[in-house]
């Protein structure tokens, strides 16, 4: 019984952390990625990608609590964040094009 409670506690803590920190990380990565790759002028890329970030964060928070496993849900969060951030920050001069 007490083992179940502590598992449950870790389960909740993992999801809360994933919603707050993971959600922000994914939103950050998506924003950075779109700010580079949207086919728009630079000011518009920046504004529209930033405005979309809150929808991404909300979606991740919902996903995190809907996911079946409290540990495996971290895989897509870390994966998406890493891939999109690398694609955004390693795009050379392409990211600062006007």
């Amino acid at each position: 019984m007490s083992r179940n409670v502590s598992i449950n506690r870790w389960n909740i803590a993992s999801r809360v952390l994933a919603a707050l920190v993971g959600g922000y990380a994914v939103a950050y990565a998506v924003t950075a990625f779109l700010a580079v790759y949207l086919p728009l002028a630079r000011p518009d890329r920046v504004v529209f990608s930033s405005l979309a970030s809150f929808a991404v964060w909300t979606a991740v928070a919902i996903y995190v609590f809907a996911a079946r496993s409290a540990t495996r849900l971290w895989l897509p969060i870390i994966g998406v964040t890493a891939v999109l951030c690398l694609a955004a920050f390693l795009s050379g001069d392409w990211r600062v094009r006007p």
């Binding site: 939103a27 950050y28 950075a32 700010a35 890329r45 920046v46 930033s50 405005l51 600062v96």
Partner: peptide
Amino acid sequence: GVAIFVASYMPAAAQVSYSGNVMQYFGEV
């Protein structure tokens, strides 16, 4: 409501596309 302070809450786009140069970012946008 959260969108109004988007530049403070989500600085990712300015950091990547303006290399964090806030004055240039605001001026151009």
